[in-house]
Amino acid sequence: MSIALPYIEIDGCPAADADPALLAVLQSGYGHFTAMQVRGGRVRGLALHLERLDGATRELFGRGLDGERVRTLVRHALASAGMRDASVRVYVYETAVAVTVRGPQTMAEAPRSLMSVPYQRPVAHIKHLGGFAQGYFGGAAARAGYDDALLTGPGGVVSEGHITNVAFWDGTSVVWPDAPALRGITMALLEPRLLPSARRVVTLADLPSYRAAFLMNSQGFAPVRRIDSTAFAVEEELMERVREAYEEVPRDEV
């Protein structure tokens, strides 16, 4: 079954049949989510996705979210959509959990260009809803001829891509920006496998000192060829190591 628009279930019920009160909760815009790529009914870093959902639910709503409940809801939505390869999102609101299912997505590995923008996500450690500014700056970057936006703070401190994490290569270590940012699942899976690596403050002024950079999110990874006017080489050996590290991560049965 090929789905252009997402198939949506709310607490295990098709959105079209859901209680209107639950639909109203979804319109509140207050909640959080995780995004995962499912292949053959399996997901890389499933435990990290479940930990993310539980931790953010505790912080936002003062209670936990049982991982087995999440797995049951995801399995049900996948079965209802007739898909085992899919892009899945789990949205958590105060009184409801929504699951969306659509066709699988993979990040193209073509080198990316980034436009720096003066914005950092509020409460950056949570993958929360309400990302108007991210969409705005992502669109502005596209209109200016770039592939993505790079979020920065005071003093040009680099945080993250507008929907990605970013890492730099200094010729010796993979450097992860030490700034407010979401610790993405793919980043969390790659970081311990890409040794040596380090956390360090990275500013726009520092960019010429790095040999390479790359992006990652739930869809995969890609090298960076340019940030503003700073060009980067595509280090094939580095990207091959990233690819190997990514492929080493086992997929877990939902």
Rank of each mutant, 00 (worst) to 15 (best):
V242K: 08
E59A: 14
R112A: 14
T164F: 11
H76M: 08
I163V: 15
T186N: 13
F221T: 00
Y119K: 00
G130I: 08
D178S: 12
E244F: 07
A245C: 08
E68C: 04
A18V: 12
S197Q: 15
T230D: 06
M187H: 14
A144I: 10
V201I: 13
S229L: 10
L73F: 01
V158F: 07
G103D: 14
V97G: 00
L151R: 01
D17T: 04
Q37T: 15
A231F: 10
E191N: 05
L190P: 12
E51K: 07
G45F: 06
H162F: 10
V157E: 10
P20H: 08
I8F: 09
R44I: 04
D228S: 06
A16I: 15
Y93I: 04
I227H: 02
G155D: 05
L150V: 06
R69W: 00
A4R: 13
G135Y: 01
G55S: 14
V174C: 12
W169Y: 07
L50S: 02
S80Y: 02
A79T: 11
V175E: 05
L60R: 04
S116E: 06
G40D: 09
H128D: 09
P177C: 10
K127C: 10
S173M: 08
R121F: 01
P177W: 05
A142Y: 03
S28C: 09
V123Y: 10
R193P: 01
I126V: 15
A81Q: 10
I227F: 02
L129H: 14
Y246C: 10
V242P: 09
E247S: 12
M115L: 15
A35S: 15
V88G: 00
A188I: 05
R84G: 12
P192C: 04
L5F: 13
M36Y: 00
V99E: 00
L207E: 12
L182S: 04
I8W: 06
T34M: 07
P192N: 03
A15C: 10
Q219I: 10
A18H: 10
D85Y: 00
G40I: 06
D228V: 09
V202C: 12
V25C: 11
F232D: 12
V123D: 14
G12C: 13
V201R: 14
E247L: 13
V224N: 06
E160I: 01
S80R: 15
L73M: 04
P192Q: 06
V92K: 00
A140I: 12
L60P: 10
V101W: 03
L190M: 09
E237D: 15
D54S: 03
A47V: 04
A167Y: 05
